[in-house]
Amino acid sequence: MSGWDRFADTFLNTAVMAKYLPAIIDGFFLTVGLAALVVVTGIAAGLVLALLRSLGVRPLNWLIIFVVDLFRALPPLVVIVLLYFGLPSAGFSPDAFSTTWASLSLVLMAFAEEIFWAGITAVPRGQWEASRSTGLTFWQTLSSVVLPQAIRLTIPPLTNRTIAITKGTALGSVIGLSEILSQASSAMSLSFNPSPLMLGAAAYLVLFLPVVVLGRWIETKFAWQR
């Protein structure tokens, strides 16, 4: 057996790959669904917190800042493990999917809130004043004048952060969520061959490469208009 044959047999073993491909595909769709959910709930929750913060109610803002700083400081894996093994003692036992979804959403929410908030405060005061001086209310000004400008500023950092956090779906493997990585590593244990890991890596590329390219496209598109 030549060196290349040995390498191919170990890492690109077609027989092993064919056998575990269905499992990887299952993991792929689970990861896609989970990532999509995390993006929607995380960004929506972050936006809601940023809007609440713009009201300027001091005790509320302290609470928001505390929550946001907490979830920005904790490693996502710690949040997942804490919720998964901690909540049952509070009489509530979420499954692995819900736990990963909630954990990553909380982390994305925290970062998205900071990004939206930075965008809102970057809109000059004069924009608020011009709008309010024509009789628009606080919320009308926020939604028609301030947010459209703020969101344009937030698109590039938000895209980056969203990609980084959705890749954290792989952390679900720690609590037995059968997403891509988990399927690949259990296939590896069963077959005594790391080829499924290569399949898993390929699945991640298929999933995230388009997202990264899309992110780059959105960034340049919004960077140009200003």
Partner: peptide, 11 residues
């Protein structure tokens, strides 16, 4: 009201 810095909505 008209402002020194115009404050038109850029978008």
């Amino acid at each position: 009201m008209v402002f020194q810095s115009f404050n038109l909505y850029p978008h």
